[in-house]
């Protein structure tokens, strides 16, 4: 395929060999829970997308950490995501337009791609006082969500805030924050975490491009390929748990030995995510590897249910 050759030539220029790329596709395919026969098809999605699916990314009550996480994507690097894979029609942080022109862009995109765009929501929606606690361009988050989300082909909640409310929703939740699905009564695909792993976002998008549909979900709306198992079940320190070898204090000999962090508060047994296998930042590490207990950040209401973070559940 000519496109494919051009694509691999371009990759080579960037210092990424064909072998590296196929390795990544194999990893991604495995992450998505597909058989190895899908590897060439996954590669094709990156090499020759037929058309770039339009994306409208809405920011509500959040810290932009989920957007930042997406920027950390490697294979494909974010420039490929933005210039070649997706068409990011609206994203407040990275878009060049501002003010009225930004608003206009949002409305043009919704009009042009009605029923076809993927709506990605980052952040929770304030519901008390008609949503008065959060506004963009004079409209409440709640109004914006009601207006835009139902016109999308699919709504993806990127991060725990958009999915379940996150830190804004922590007790006593003065703004009445909830996830976007609950706020407007729709079902969302939830890629949770604080922030989520960009690999799980890319996996979801590739699934969509490849199979023309969103991946299978668990009862909390999360893709099973990433959220089908607990942290505990995939943890490299699991054998220490079985052997009754625990860290009882940070900085101890046991901590240096890499023992299990359950007794200093690890919420791995109650948390579903693929952190131990996917890891973060191109496989560099993940919190338990860095000696810190899992805080359960991909679960609903984790600020209330998983705290105190440093005491066993």
């Amino acid at each position: 395929m000519e496109n494919e050759k051009a694509f691999f030539d371009k990759l080579e220029q960037k210092g990424v060999s064909r072998r590296d790329f196929m390795k990544y596709c194999t990893f991604l395919t495995a992450t998505m829970g597909l058989s190895s026969s899908f590897v060439p098809k996954v590669a094709e999605v990156f090499a020759a997308p037929k058309e770039r699916p339009p994306v409208i990314w809405l920011h509500f009550g959040e810290c932009t950490g989920c957007s930042e996480a997406l920027l950390r994507s490697q294979y494909p690097y974010v420039d490929d995501l933005l210039l070649e894979l997706l068409s990011m029609e609206y994203h407040e942080t990275i878009m060049a337009a501002a003010g009225d022109q930004a608003e206009e862009q949002l409305h043009n995109a919704v009009k042009k791609y009605g029923g076809k765009f993927i709506c990605i929501v980052e952040g929770a929606v304030a519901t008390k006082f008609d949503g008065a606690y959060g506004k963009v361009g004079g409209k409440t988050f709640l109004q914006i969500a009601k207006d835009i989300c139902p016109k999308a082909a699919a709504v993806i909640a990127m991060g725990t805030c958009a999915a379940y409310g996150g830190i804004q929703a922590a007790a006593p939740n003065p703004g009445g924050y909830v996830g976007v699905g609950e706020a407007i009564g729709i079902k969302t695909l939830n890629i949770t975490g604080c922030p989520p792993n960009p690999l799980n976002f890319v996996g979801t998008i590739v699934n969509y491009l490849l199979l023309g549909k969103l991946p299978a979900l668990d009862s909390l709306g999360r893709p099973l390929f990433a959220f089908g198992k607990t942290i505990h079940d995939q943890c490299q320190r699991r054998s220490h748990f079985e052997n009754n070898e625990f860290v009882l204090e940070f900085g101890s000999k046991e901590a240096e030995m890499g023992y299990c962090l359950y007794k200093v508060g690890c919420k791995g047994p109650d948390t579903y995510n693929n952190c131990p296998t996917a890891k973060f930042n191109d496989g560099t590490s993940w919190p338990v590897q860095a000696g810190h207990p899992c805080i359960g950040c991909s679960e609903p209401a984790f600020w209330d249910k998983m705290t105190p973070f440093y005491e066993p559940s």
Partner: peptide
Amino acid sequence: QLGPFSNAY
């Protein structure tokens, strides 16, 4: 599809 560069100055 100008994406993030749409409608700027």
